[in-house]
Design a protein around this nucleic acid. Structure first.
Length: 379
RNA sequence: GGGCAGAUGGCCGAGUGGUUAAAGGCGACAGACUGUAAAUCUGUUCUCUUCGGGGUACGGAGGUUCGAAUCCUUCUCUGCCCA
């Protein structure tokens, strides 16, 4: 049992893209990688078997806030951690609840000590201090756990971004101390990733990268992007952060994004992504395919009996037709949600595999330019 | 054969003299969704338009009224009850 290790493998000559291998006690992860989001211990509408066999996921996420509220720490601890509870034996990463500071802004109070959330389930109040968030994530048992941060909205001004970043840094110290004064609960090694903040301000981002890097963590994350700021700004800040984070550690861009977002950010040196987009948008009828994006609810697919996507190695995508999936979605059949989610996730994982292949071949940059255009095509 | 109830926009269903082109729901059509309070949310949904407005419309026909989906007469159809 050992801490996470990152082996850099190939670097693309035409960009800053790289391939690598992350080793955890629950197995290896080939990077760049996309991590399906399983907020409450379940990737919505998708079984663990489908994640393994169809999606070919290498690592999935869980969420501290949601899992803490339900099923709760007692169940998770008695189960022996989330891996045993949900049956996912590959790596798991848990987000800290920092994003909920952003997304549940209407029902939480931020203080120096931590954040008091009002449960979206029953209205009860819960204080999440950095220390408690570490304790919770110890109990959930993710292989990678995230520092507790404040994720400010994309349009935040300098003063707010600065204040918020400073708070996130103080919280990082507290997370770090708590994490290193507590032990792994289940016999395998957990890893704490710091999160870079600083809004859309390069000066702040640079200092946040330096602060995060000073922890010499086994990996680093970039947070606070794709939260309302324009896409070019997101790219600019992502690129800037990559340049100021250690090369020899995985860089995780939190919450991003669209397929083209991921290719652009891979070219800047990002290794890990997560996003609800393939699952949420899939449930809402938006499909990402090797030929472009489409809304499967649209009337134009009513008589299209061709496969959802025959361009990737996923049986679900190859087997079911667009017309059939449209029918399922229109009829609000559960199976439609599953097929759409499995397909979109399989596509995201396929895209990462293609990216790795092209980085290894050394033609990632040119391939990316062409692929981004295809990915954005509205079918 | 007799009695009662009813017929509203693609469907269901409010509305019982004027602010009603007609609530609401469904369906349909389109859009949004980026560390998941999301199988959610938003918009459009008679017709023509030079976007100011115009034309048709609440089973059919006729009538009362300044004005009718709303009141009266009659016809057609539907449901229930009695023979």
């Amino acid at each position: 049992m050992a801490a996470l290790q990152f082996q850099l493998e190939k670097t693309d000559p035409g960009s800053k893209a790289r391939t690598g291998k992350i080793k955890t006690d629950h197995g290896e992860i080939l990077t760049p990688i996309f991590m399906p989001v399983g907020t409450v211990g379940s990737v919505k509408a998708v079984t663990q078997q489908q994640l393994m066999n169809d999606v070919k996921a290498q690592i999935i996420l869980g969420n501290t806030y949601h899992l803490y509220l339900r099923p709760g720490l007692e169940v998770l601890e008695k189960a022996g951690g989330l891996h045993k509870f949900n049956g996912w034996q590959k790596p798991i990463l848990t987000d800290s609840g920092g994003y909920q500071v952003f997304s549940l802004a209407g029902t939480r109070i931020i203080k120096e000590e931590g954040v008091t959330f009002q449960s979206h389930i029953d209205g009860s109040r819960h204080l999440f201090s950095p220390e408690y968030v570490m304790d919770i994530q110890r109990i959930i048992g993710g292989d990678i756990i995230m520092a507790f941060d404040e994720c400010p909205p994309g349009g935040s001004d300098y003063a707010y971004a600065r204040t918020s970043m400073d708070l996130t840094h103080r919280w990082l110290d507290r997370c770090w101390n708590r994490f290193h004064s507590t032990e792994d609960k289940y016999g395998y090694t957990q890893n704490l990733f710091p999160i870079v903040q600083g809004g859309t301000f390069k000066e702040l981002r640079k200092s946040s990268c330096e602060f995060a890097s000073s922890k010499n963590a086994t990996g680093n994350a970039i947070g606070g992007l794709s939260v309302g700021e324009p896409e070019p700004v997101m790219y600019e800040i992502c690129d800037w952060c990559c340049d100021h984070l250690p090369k020899d550690r995985p860089r995780y861009l939190m919450g991003v994004g669209t397929p083209w977002n991921m290719l652009e950010c891979i070219s800047m040196g990002i290794d890990m992504f997560d996003c609800v987009m393939p699952t949420r948008n899939g449930r809402n009828a938006m499909l990402f395919t090797t030929k472009g994006i489409l809304n499967i609810d649209n009337k134009k697919w009513e008589f299209d009996f061709s496969p959802i996507d025959d361009g990737l190695d996923c049986e679900v995508s190859n087997y079911y037709s667009k017309a059939y999936l449209r029918h399922l979605m229109k009829a609000k059949e559960f199976l439609g949600l599953t097929i759409a989610s499995v397909h979109n996730l399989a596509f995201y994982l396929w895209l990462m595999k293609e990216a790795r292949t092209h980085i290894e071949k050394g033609d990632f940059a040119s391939w990316k330019t062409e692929m981004v255009e295809v990915l954005k095509t509205k079918l």
